[in-house]
Design a protein around this nucleic acid. Sequence first.
DNA 1: CGTGCATGGTTTCATGTGCAACTATTAGTT
DNA 2: AACTAATAGTTGCACATGAAACCATGCACG
Lengths: 152, 152
Amino acid sequence: MTDENLSTEFDLEHFLPYRLDRLADRVSEALAQLYEAHYDLNVAQWRVLAWLHHRHELTAKQICAATRMDKARVSRAIQVLEGRGLMVRRPSPRDQRWQDLRLTEAGQALMVELVPQVRAWEAELVAPLATEEYHRLLDMMERLERPLRDDE
Amino acid sequence: MTDENLSTEFDLEHFLPYRLDRLADRVSEALAQLYEAHYDLNVAQWRVLAWLHHRHELTAKQICAATRMDKARVSRAIQVLEGRGLMVRRPSPRDQRWQDLRLTEAGQALMVELVPQVRAWEAELVAPLATEEYHRLLDMMERLERPLRDDE
DNA sequence: CGTGCATGGTTTCATGTGCAACTATTAGTT
DNA sequence: AACTAATAGTTGCACATGAAACCATGCACG
């Protein structure tokens, strides 16, 4: 991309940050309907569950990194989820500052019920794209994101 | 896309809502540095300015639709921007319930200064993509978004 | 060992946001 | 014309969030 027409006019419809934000917002809103109404989870809680389901055992720090959420926000989500008996935490034997987080049976059960719904919904979401296009999309997103990464 | 492997496992790295959100978040954060630090604008205020710059004259309602922000949020952004002398509002002659919003000279001047910076930054952002790829990306995003649109 | 520094997680506090109630104006129906 | 419904925008309130202060634990270096 070397379009150097840097005039003061710009068309927001072709401004990537705007388009990205709008799409992400709509997608996120649609997804939220799946877990909010039926399972009474907010975004933060859903993300914590999703990562624990995905990775089995994690610390809060790792969840912060994965979800890009503030540690206070993660901490609060964990409190709620633990209160609802969906997950447990115990101080890590390796380092008492960390806590190992994992889903309880109930948490697992919830995810086993929820995940297929989410997957089915996602299949519909990406239905307008051919499989090959979808891969290219993820690849482009990866290339856009890489220079923006702070650490790792 | 007709991959019907709806198992209970799913890899968040290939879960579009997650990837989309993460990218949008990073992009938005990077962009915010341009207008926050130097111009003391928050996201809502930036969006209002951007749309007024783009479309010259709008009502709050139209800005709500364009930015997908709550009308209270837009209303508050407008109050601040007007207080800073960057824009003005006057009741629309066509309908006293509406107010026509437009940038002041100062608001125009700010955008004339800011927009080229934003455009230059965006050029860097999309540099990893070939021009043709970029068009395909926007096209795919459009196709993903269309079914999610509520109205219009 | 022990004193200081770093780190994971919690809590406090100030702020921004969304929802819902409200005001003012206009449109519709009879 | 009058009464009702709808619409644009504002405000009150309750809640979620992020930054920073805080606490507890572990590590490094003397």
